[in-house]
């Protein structure tokens, strides 16, 4: 029985029929993923510690590196692909990412705005302290 008519579950690599071949192909995929992830991690640590880069740009660079590494993990370790048998997995992931972005960016935006607008002037601060 084959599963060709069905979606591929997440974490399930696409495998050639031959058993020997698929074993070594699977190892190769994980090894490539590991090497890429190690490279990106090392770059992140370097970026955070070097004085060569423009300071204010470093946090953005770190976020970009983390996004890249998340992509590596998703593709090489969780085997999320763009294939038609992966549509459900990708859609669920996209909704998850949307929710994460809304929660994190929304919180940061609202709280930064709040800090900016509600910063009490010194005399107000004193009034506040009397109560």
């Amino acid at each position: 029985m084959t599963d060709t008519a069905f979606d591929r579950p997440p974490g399930d690599p696409s495998m050639p029929a031959e058993s020997e071949e698929r074993e070594s192909a699977g190892v190769l995929v994980y090894t490539i993923g590991l090497l890429l992830a190690v490279g990106l991690t090392a770059t992140s640590f370097w970026v955070a510690n070097t004085g060569l880069l423009w300071g204010p740009g470093v946090p953005l660079g770190l976020v970009v590196l983390a996004v890249a590494q998340m992509g590596i993990h998703l593709v090489f370790f969780l085997h999320i692909t763009t294939g038609p048998d992966n549509t459900n997995n990708v859609l669920a992931l996209a909704f998850g990412i949307l929710t994460v972005i809304l929660v994190v960016v929304g919180s940061l935006w609202i709280m930064a705005d709040l800090n900016h607008n509600m910063m009490p002037r010194p005399e107000l601060m004193n009034l506040h302290m009397q109560h």
Partner: peptide, 24 residues
């Protein structure tokens, strides 16, 4: 096999949303 892994995938994504609130 497909149904179970997909259900667990949904759970993981909700777990990651929970982590997102803690990150925020």
């Amino acid at each position: 096999r497909v149904v179970v892994a997909y259900g667990f995938w949904i759970f993981l994504l909700s777990d990651i949303v929970m982590f997102a609130t803690l990150f925020a």
